[in-house]
Nucleic acid binder design. Structure first.
Lengths: 219, 219
DNA sequence: CATAAAACCGCATGAATATGCGGTGATATC
DNA sequence: GATATCACCGCATATTCATGCGGTTTTATG
């Protein structure tokens, strides 16, 4: 395992000139942070030669041309070791989750202080995930389960989990020592409680309500 | 909307006496933080009268009797406005995600500094989610999509999303102006790429690979 | 120009699912 | 002791799904 380089090579992608220059100045003033390129769009950045040397990118989301989200996907695919931190004015759920799903390690609001930005870069470089508190809050909340929704019984949860694996009613019955019609009985009740009328919806809703874990999700 | 009270009423649940007293002393030394009770187990805490006055709980996970996770579920159900911060030695994924899913707002490692603990309490009280960097990293990573897995085309993703809603092939075809057999064609390919052979598995795998969002998950 | 890959369409068939209705036995509530 | 709720079993039927095989058209690549 290679040790961290002494200096972190940083790239900036941000279309607002003032913002970009400000970041560059602040980051560059740190002895161990080296801004090797700053660009106004993903296209400019990705066609430059810095992509093979850069260690960490600070990116905006609202960019002309290729959006920051698409940019994250691009980088993640072609340069999987590059760490990306989003710094943006968007604090809506969709942007946040899209960016994180695409592979960003951090997500900052643009109003972050220079010191905060520097700290975030170091934090990400050490393997952490810098996210400003109210973004963190949204992320954490996305894990919370619905509170006063209709509860499933133990048996129903058990069967719901089996449903998600794709096996037939017959196979479910065999696994839990129940007749096919017994399985059907519980499934009816599950559908009623979740207010759905298909196996597919039950699974989708069950997962989104955290009643079942798709195995791969948390590795 | 009621303004935040000037003083935050805090409860502590931690079985290690030294740890508990340490926390109580540190937290209590802040003028705006008021420790109104500290307990060695959930049972003790929940049967006390502080539960109706407490604003924020700092809890361990590894507790005798009712575990911290169960404790979180209990509190979330009966006192949904109480904010919970877990402070624990467990940094494995299962404990973290279980606690967050159950409703904890923050997750700290026990080695957190007193200043860090105080900051975390204030942060949580302001609506943030205090999590130490390497915990944050795990949470963020759980959002990342698998990199070199077989990609679905745009059309396939579109259809996979429809599949999760539970509608029939016929209905899917109508929605996206495609024949039933055209729908079938894409579904075959989706199954092959995801290595499944049922609609249920495709949905479960699609969600866990973040190819589709169950609508309710991110609110 | 040949070839390949993606995106469709059609048909056929056995398997699985959704749902309605009618049962039984156990437990709990009033 | 009547009533209700839960967990199960059985049967019947229309609908939907999974999958195999053979097509066409468009678009990119060599």
């Amino acid at each position: 395992m290679k040790k961290h380089t002494a200096v972190i090579n940083i790239g900036i992608i941000e279309d607002n000139r003032y913002m970009r220059d400000g970041w560059e100045a602040f980051i560059g003033s740190e002895p161990d942070l080296n801004v090797i390129g700053s660009f106004g769009s993903c296209e400019e950045a990705f066609s430059s030669d810095i992509m093979n040397r850069v260690n960490l990118l600070v990116m905006d989301i609202g960019l002309p041309g290729m959006s920051g989200i698409e940019g994250v996907r691009y980088v993640k695919k072609r340069h999987p070791d590059v760490i990306m931190i989003m710094a943006t004015i968007f604090d809506d759920d969709q942007h946040i989750f899209d960016a994180l799903k695409a592979g960003a390690m951090g997500y900052l609001e643009k109003k972050v202080s220079p010191e905060g930005l520097i700290a975030a870069i170091r934090d990400a470089w050490e393997g952490g995930s810098p996210i400003t508190p109210n973004i963190a809050s949204k992320v954490i909340r996305s894990f919370h389960q619905g509170a006063n929704e209709e509860q499933l019984t133990e048996r129903e949860n058990q069967i719901l989990e089996k449903l998600a694996t794709g096996v037939s009613y017959h196979a479910i019955g065999k696994e839990i020592y129940l007749s096919v019609d017994g399985v059907r009985y519980h499934i009816r009740n599950i559908y009623r409680k979740l207010q759905v009328n298909s196996r597919s919806e039950a699974i989708a809703k069950g997962i989104s309500r955290k009643l079942i874990n798709p195995g791969i999700l948390f590795y």
